[in-house]
Simulated scan of single mutants.
Amino acid sequence: MLKVGLTGGIGSGKSTVAQLLEVLGVPVYYADDRAKQIMNTQIEVVAQIKQLLGEEAYQNKVVNRTFVAQMVFNDKVLLQKLNQIVHPAVKNDFEQWCRFNSNSKIVVQEAAILFENGGFKKFDKMILVTAPVETRINRVMLRDNVSKEKVMERMNNQWTDEQKIELADKIIVNDDKQSVIEQTIELIKEL
């Protein structure tokens, strides 16, 4: 089984590429979605997050994402500690998911910070989705109904495309000029 990492900065379109891969029959593990579920359901993870961030990290037995984001996005040490709780749990969940999908020749994990957290090392191939910075900012502002400043805060917690390109095996350009569908189909052929 070929394990492929799919990543890209916020607003790059990595989820669009992931959905195209699924349509083409490739199983996709959405790491950020699974992380949210794990943060709400795995008792050990919930306890560790409460110990790190306090009881306010949960509201009605569900992670209080606004509170958690406010706590960690401007505190890199706290963010790293939170990641040290969540990332191992997601890694174990992904391995179980791979066993469940063991009949597939290719499996893909879609995640935002595979390069930043070193997670890319566990994959056979890495796909990077890129888009111009202004395009990404506009997409996120529309999608999340947030200010440019808020988008920039999130972007500042991620590597630039230039930093990621050096480590990527394949790049899909999502600049609204080139066909992402054609690039994704070509990618599957190459894999």
Rank of each mutant, 00 (worst) to 15 (best):
Q42H: 10
F94M: 14
A31P: 04
M141R: 11
F123H: 05
E182D: 11
Q109D: 05
V72F: 00
D176T: 14
F73N: 12
T160I: 10
L53Y: 01
E56K: 15
M141C: 13
E190F: 09
G13E: 02
L6H: 08
G9E: 04
L191P: 01
A168K: 07
D144H: 09
V23W: 00
I165C: 03
E56Q: 15
A47E: 14
L20S: 08
L20I: 10
N117S: 15
Q48W: 02
A69H: 06
C98M: 12
T184H: 09
Q59L: 14
K121L: 14
L82D: 03
Q51D: 13
F123S: 07
Y30K: 13
E22R: 09
V151R: 00
I171N: 05
I43R: 07
V140H: 06
M39H: 01
G54P: 04
R139S: 13
N74M: 05
I43K: 12
E190M: 09
V133N: 01
E162W: 10
R99S: 13
R154E: 03
V133S: 06
K14Q: 13
S12F: 06
I137A: 05
D93R: 02
T184G: 14
A89S: 14
E162Q: 15
L24G: 04
T66H: 09
V107M: 08
A69K: 11
V146C: 15
V107S: 10
G13Q: 04
K50A: 08
L21H: 04
K177G: 01
E110L: 03
L142V: 11
H87W: 12
L78P: 01
E134A: 13
D32G: 03
Q96V: 15
N83H: 06
M141L: 02
R139D: 14
V107R: 06
N92G: 04
I172F: 00
V133L: 14
V180P: 01
Q42R: 14
E116T: 08
M71P: 01
Q48I: 05
K36D: 04
E162P: 03
N174F: 08
E186K: 07
L128T: 05
I185M: 12
L82G: 07
N157Y: 00
K150W: 10
P88W: 03
S15Q: 08
R154F: 08
I137D: 02
L53R: 00
D169R: 07
V129D: 10
A18S: 11
D144N: 13
K122S: 15
S12V: 09
G11P: 07
L187P: 06
L52V: 09
E55N: 11
L167A: 09
L142K: 12
K76D: 12
I185Q: 15
P88M: 09
S102A: 15
V4G: 05
D75P: 04
S147D: 11
Q70Y: 00
K150I: 10
D175C: 07
V133F: 06
P27K: 04
N156S: 15
L20F: 08
A89L: 05
I49K: 01
I165Y: 08
V26E: 01
N117G: 00
S147H: 11
M126T: 14
